[in-house]
């Protein structure tokens, strides 16, 4: 096992070497535009123009496409059924038995799926091109406390190990004759002997892990340094501010556009 950075795809690319906050600002801007500007196809347009080229530059386009497809598909199906067929009233496009597909519902579903696509793909683009420790270091620069970075990074690393342990216990219980398949009751009853030892052992470990952290001066106040160094440039700093302002501008404009007719009329 080499170093496991979660979703991070190690590649040499301009996107990978951007400061995490720059990426965060850009993705926030894309998300704001896609969610706030009306239009059924707006999110898809932003995806095509804003996410796809950057993913290609970052050499993670195949990952983004397959990851987003897998995540969005169940939502798209649900939306198509729930909003397409059960939209209370509207123009009927197609009648299938007792159910009717309505135009308004279909467009609502398409836009909804697009918004989920944007939420998923911005999150994935950030995760694929940014090491988690770089991200937490960058958040630290924004004033997020050190302890939050610890919680995020340590859980990212411990979860896969915990899962391995769970599988081991599951197999052991099975070999001792515990039923883990079959009726709901059988499976529900399998739960407690499976999870309780696992949960207790991880809770018991808390004490030693806290001691180990204290020994490493984790609780010390005052300035801290970092072995990991983030690369930042003046133009990136400028870009971040511009993106932030632009995102705010879009949101304010949208609120104004929605409220103005009421107050002006």
């Amino acid at each position: 096992m080499t170093v496991n950075y979660g979703l991070y795809v190690p590649k040499q690319s301009g996107i990978h070497s951007l400061h995490p906050l720059t990426k965060l600002a850009y993705l926030g801007f894309c998300l704001a535009v896609s969610w706030v500007i009306p239009g059924t196809w707006t999110p898809y347009l932003v995806f095509l123009l804003g996410i796809v080229p950057l993913s290609a530059l970052g050499q993670v386009l195949p990952n983004i496409l397959s990851g987003a497809f897998k995540a969005v598909l169940p939502f798209a199906i649900s939306l198509f059924v729930v909003q397409g067929f059960f939209w209370p009233e509207g123009t009927v496009l197609q009648q299938i038995g007792p159910f009717s597909l309505k135009e308004e519902g279909l467009f609502f579903a398409i836009r909804g799926a697009g918004r989920i696509l944007m939420a998923v793909s911005t999150f994935l683009l950030l995760s694929y091109t940014t090491r988690p420790d770089e991200l937490t270091l960058a958040l630290g620069q924004l004033g997020v406390p050190n302890s939050i970075a610890y919680v995020i990074l340590s859980t990212l690393q411990i979860i896969p190990r915990f899962q391995t342990k769970a599988t081991t216990i599951l197999d052991a219980q099975r070999s001792r004759g515990l039923e883990t398949e079959g009726s709901l009751r059988v499976r529900a009853r399998a739960l407690l002997p499976l999870v309780l030892p696992l949960l207790l052992s991880s809770i018991v470990d808390i004490e030693e892990r806290a001691i180990a952290l204290e020994v490493r001066a984790f609780g010390r106040q005052g300035p801290k340094t970092s072995l990991l160094v983030l690369h930042d440039t003046p133009w990136q700093r400028l870009l971040r501010w511009l993106l932030l302002l632009a995102a705010l501008g879009v949101i304010v404009w949208r609120i104004y556009a929605a409220l103005a007719p009421r107050f002006l009329s």
């Binding site: 302890s147 610890y150 919680v151 340590s154 859980t155 411990i158 979860i159 915990f162 949960l199 991880s202 809770i203 470990d205 808390i206 004490e207 892990r209 806290a210 952290l213 204290e214 984790f218 609780g219």
Partner: peptide, 15 residues
């Protein structure tokens, strides 16, 4: 939010 509280938080999330 002592060190134990922080480690506990992490373990809770893993759970």
């Amino acid at each position: 939010f002592s060190t134990v509280g922080i480690v506990l938080m992490g373990v809770g999330i893993v759970i």
